[in-house]
Design a protein around this nucleic acid. Structure first.
Length: 359
DNA sequence: AATACGGGGGG
DNA sequence: CCCCCAGTATT
């Protein structure tokens, strides 16, 4: 009934055995380079393994170490991050690389307190890097571990951080002192692939002998599903303005949503406003001159966590000249667009433009 | 304790 | 359409 005696030992060896036999092959597995592992952990924050893999590979060719990242221009760093989301992570990575170069001789600090001072490094990332790169026995609690351990320990309720203290208290004496990195990754990968939110694969689970939820038949009850707010639907209009072979783009203000990225000027349509009227109003506000000769180009849908945008793109001309004091504006050639970081919605529109030019 | 912060894949 | 992901910083 309780997790006493040999249970924790069985739990640990079951996990390690599963990991040795069943682990996936991932680009950041098999390296001990603290820089590479740090970058991988930042990329993996709230982001699926599959999404991260190509970004990680490309990143390591562009910025193979902290020094190269520290001296890279922000635009290039954000461009390498384009499409991954949570762009503050990329900015933090670059700032932290400078700190690593200036204060730690170019090496990622191996101390929990020190590494936690780096921007973007919280309790999870600190423990992950220290355990995997430096073999220090800090347990990790991510979303996968939280769900798995709530089931193992039969902790009822929603999967929220308030349970982490109890989970860490349990894991601290249980984590493998010889292979803490393997233990942590085993916990995360079993949580992700076996102990899934719904339809967990208990028959294949190495933690099943220790799992209270399984024993009591509560796998589908723990954790309790969270009620998500319905995404709000928003409609926005964007102006694709080409003049002498150059497109007008605008840098989004920082901080804020998509801060530091570039986009075509435009904005939200108001309730009883036509799209063209919205376009002219937004361009007056953002650029200092309204559009004219608007011609529908494309509609793209773009989903965020709490809302969803339908972007209506129009090719149009500018009625007058842009007013630089309204914000950061730039005329960029079609080729030049590839050097600027865009949100995924804008990137979709750029693809449509390029398709149009081919046709 | 809540909220801001992206985007895409899977059911 | 719905769910949630190898979290962190801010309020």
């Amino acid at each position: 009934m309780t997790n006493k005696g040999s249970r924790p030992i069985e739990f640990r060896s079951g996990l390690l055995g599963w990991y040795r036999a069943r682990r996936r092959k991932l680009p950041w597995r098999g390296t001990k380079d603290p820089y590479k592992l740090w970058v991988s952990e930042i990329m993996l924050q709230q982001t699926t393994v599959q999404a991260v893999i190509p970004y990680y590979e490309r990143w390591m060719t562009l910025f193979p170490d902290a020094a190269s990242l520290a001296r890279a221009p922000l635009r290039k760093v954000l461009k390498a991050w384009q499409g991954l989301g949570y762009y503050r992570r990329a900015q933090n990575l670059r700032v932290a690389a400078k700190i690593i170069v200036n204060n730690y001789g170019g090496r990622v600090p191996a101390d929990f307190e020190e590494i936690s001072k780096l921007p973007g490094v919280g309790p999870y990332t600190a423990a992950a890097v220290l355990s995997i790169a430096f073999d220090k026995p800090y347990p990790v609690v991510d979303a996968n571990v939280r769900r798995l351990m709530m089931r193992v320990l039969a902790i009822r309720g929603e999967a929220v951080p308030k349970h982490d203290a109890a989970i860490l208290e349990f894991l601290k004496p249980v984590i493998s002192k010889r292979s803490p990195g393997a233990f942590n990754q085993a916990l995360m990968e079993v949580g992700g692939r076996i102990c899934k939110p719904r339809n967990p694969l208990c028959p294949r689970c190495p933690a099943r002998p220790a799992c209270s939820a399984y024993r009591e038949g509560l796998q589908e009850v723990i954790p309790r599903p969270r009620k998500m707010a319905r995404p709000k639907r928003i409609e926005a209009v964007v102006a694709v303005i080409e003049r002498d072979g150059r497109f007008l783009i605008r840098k989004r203000p920082e901080p804020g949503l998509l801060g530091g990225l570039w986009e075509f000027p435009g904005g939200k349509r108001k309730p009883r406003e036509s799209r063209v009227a919205a376009l002219r109003r937004e361009l007056r506000e953002e650029v200092g001159a309204p559009t004219r000769d608007e011609k529908f180009l494309a509609k793209v849908r773009h989903a965020y966590t709490t809302f969803e945008v339908d972007l209506y793109a129009y090719r149009c001309r500018l009625e007058g000249e842009p007013d630089p004091s309204r914000g950061r504006l730039k005329w960029v050639t079609s080729k030049g667009l590839r050097y600027y970081p865009f949100p995924s919605g804008s990137a979709k529109i750029i693809r449509r433009i390029e398709e149009g030019n081919v046709a």
